[in-house]
Design a protein around this nucleic acid. Structure first.
Length: 425
RNA sequence: GCACAGGUGGGUGAGUGGUUAAAGCCGACAGACUGUAAAUCUGUUCCUCCUAGCGAGGUACGGAGGUUCGAAUCCUCCCCUGUGCA
């Protein structure tokens, strides 16, 4: 079994669940911080754990370019390399097909990228993307897709969706043939760490199937002790998720969902949104696409959203979301709070001795003033990025926790303009 | 005292007769950011007025005069700064 997903409570279309992965049991709906290059920018792994991050993202394209998949594999996979004990998900590089549009060329076989680092040329195929993701060893990996740009005409949307469908089948085929080669399932992934930096590579490896995990501080500490023994995740492999495309066309979304389901995956993602379309349209497409996805499988909405939006999508029945917004905005001085958005760089906060968010329990709001945070930002201090990111992630993760709590009570919660409201589902 | 080199908008620093209210950078002030080419990007940054525009005036390149159709740019004198020599 790759992963299991157990639905628990529900409220309207929203549901809570437990997603059991090799490295963590994830409570859903979940927000997944993005750590593209094996780091959630600005935040150390131990703090991410404290904040309650259950699963974070890495990116295949970026890690393939630097430091290279083989390097990561030898370090015990991405878990060992970055010393992350909980769950990981890698994006396939499909999004880079979209975001690096000026540096790539697409054919039926795959995509040629010109590296944004040194201009060198690299060819990605569904097979190579999966191979790389197996080498990285995340708990959940993604099919190689084409994230279609917006706007796109009907012919373009259909062709792109069909390409993604063919690539999904190839992704799955390759994965099925090689899924036992994950670094944390093979001895080679540990040999290096046993002889060298013993705490690297092994300490970070733990298996949800053998120990109870995430959120348990004692367990996390014990996991930090160097061990010679090689932990194995017996019977567990990575999970490969399929991705639904189809742009803003409901019929194409339905067809894409059906074709992806026919190939068969343990989880389904909705891709191709948040690519410049109006937010209302995003919501409509999410809502209509979800109708065609199986209820007993996790549904992952890729690349969203604001705090208000992630609450909204969870209410629509989305189980997993990721977004660079909290981390990127934090580095740019935009902070999300229970009272709305705060642009901490503004002059009005220069003498503000109050906390960033009086209703937030995070370590930043508990300790520092707005005036200090503004000063750090204005002074271009790295601590500004660190503290801002910690707060934003804390706010997102707390928001999702609140959503899970509401659903478990059979309530639908909303977070609009900084105000929470509840109603019986 | 003599000899050089300089004095430009909040700072730095281009510009050496005409699209120059004056480049660029920094600072300041706003805005953007949604599977991360992002510690990034965009806009504004002398004053006044309005029909708010590649709009109309005004003031401005140490000071005062002068040459010229036209001067931050050329000339004269003065003031100030730096370096060197006495």
């Amino acid at each position: 079994m790759p992963i299991t997903f157990q639905r628990e409570k529900s409220a309207g279309k929203a549901r809570t669940g437990r997603l059991v992965t090799p490295h963590a049991v994830i409570e859903t709906p979940v927000f997944m911080p993005v750590g593209t290059v094996a780091t959630v920018k600005g935040v150390p792994q131990d703090i991410l754990e404290d904040l309650g991050a259950q699963i974070i993202l890495g990116n295949t394209y970026h890690l393939y370019l630097r430091p290279g998949v083989e390097t990561v594999r030898r370090m015990g996979g991405l878990h060992g390399f970055m010393s992350w004990r909980r769950a990981l998900l890698t994006d396939s590089g499909g999004f880079q097909v979209f975001s690096l549009s000026e540096l790539r060329k697409i054919t039926e076989e795959g995509v040629t990228f010109r590296s944004h680092l040194d201009g060198s040329s690299h060819f990605f195929t569904p097979e190579s993307a999966i191979e790389a993701q197996i080498g990285l060893g995340a708990d959940i990996i993604m099919a190689f897709d084409e994230c279609t740009e917006y706007p796109a005409d009907a012919a373009r949307l259909r062709a792109s969706m069909e390409l993604t469908a063919r690539w999904a089948a190839r992704s799955k085929k390759y994965f099925e043939e090689h899924k036992n080669e994950v670094p944390w399932r093979t001895a080679s992934g540990f040999r290096l760490s046993a002889s060298g930096n013993s705490h690297v590579g092994t300490a970070a490896i733990g298996c949800a199937g053998e120990r109870e995990l995430a959120g348990d501080a004692a367990e996390l500490r014990s996991a930090g002790q160097p061990r010679a023994a090689v932990p194995t995740c017996s019977g567990q492999t990575q999970a490969l998720f399929g991705i639904v495309q189809g742009g803003m066309d409901r019929a194409l979304r339905k067809e894409s969902a059906e074709r992806t389901i026919e190939i068969g995956f343990p989880g389904y993602a909705i891709g191709g949104l948040s690519v410049g379309e109006p937010r209302e349209l995003t919501r409509e497409i999410v809502e209509s696409t979800l109708e065609h996805l199986p209820e007993d499988k996790p549904r992952y909405l890729m690349g969203v959203g604001t705090p208000e939006e992630i609450v909204e999508y969870a209410n629509l029945g989305v189980d997993m979301m990721d977004c660079v917004l909290p981390t990127r905005a934090a580095r740019h001085g935009l902070l999300f709070t229970s009272e709305g958005k705060v642009s901490i760089k503004q002059a009005r906060y220069a003498q503000d001795s109050g906390p960033l968010d009086p209703n937030c329990g995070c370590r930043v709001c508990q300790r520092y003033s707005r005036a200090y945070l503004r000063h750090l930002y204005a002074s271009n201090e790295v601590l500004a990025q660190v503290l801002n990111t910690i707060h934003n992630l804390s706010f997102y993760l707390d928001t999702m926790q609140r959503v899970r709590h509401s659903i478990s009570l059979g309530e639908v919660s909303r977070f609009l303009s900084g105000v929470w409201s509840q109603r019986k589902a």
